[in-house]
Amino acid sequence: MSCIKMKYEVPGDDFTRAGEASSMVKRKLKQLGYNPDAIRRVAIAMYEGEINMVIHAGGGVAEVEVYPDRVEIALIDQGPGIADVEMAMQEGYSTAPDNVRSLGFGAGMGLPNIKKYTDAMRIDTEVGKGTTMYLTVKAK
């Protein structure tokens, strides 16, 4: 298996559709017979990232590359950027609006969860321009 590339639009205007891209990636990895633990970690990390893009950035693009030993994910948005990444990484810190909390998110667990489930995480962000998050999950 060489590298398989996938690209998904994450629509920003419909919270009910958040997670579709993660769902498709999960299904694809299952078809490929990928390591189940890695599949779940990819799915959760990407799902949290997708939710973030919908809540904060008006959607974006998810690019996924599957290698035999790892999955690389880039989540790219043109949202407001993250003013203080260090704060954003703390459990419980959230800038999400209240209506998001009534939907089951916005507890300040998204980025900490993503960090927990990935083997590498890098955030390139600029206020007013957008954010790109690079994630790596190794198939252990």
Binding site: F15, T16, E48, L103, M109
Partner: peptide, 22 residues
């Protein structure tokens, strides 16, 4: 939901009062 996602252990059942597709 983020609290549910915080524990990757095999959990088979989710009890919730939330009703959205997420």
């Amino acid at each position: 939901m983020s609290d549910v996602l915080a524990f990757v252990k095999d959990q088979s059942v989710l009890l919730t009062g939330l009703l959205n597709p997420q």
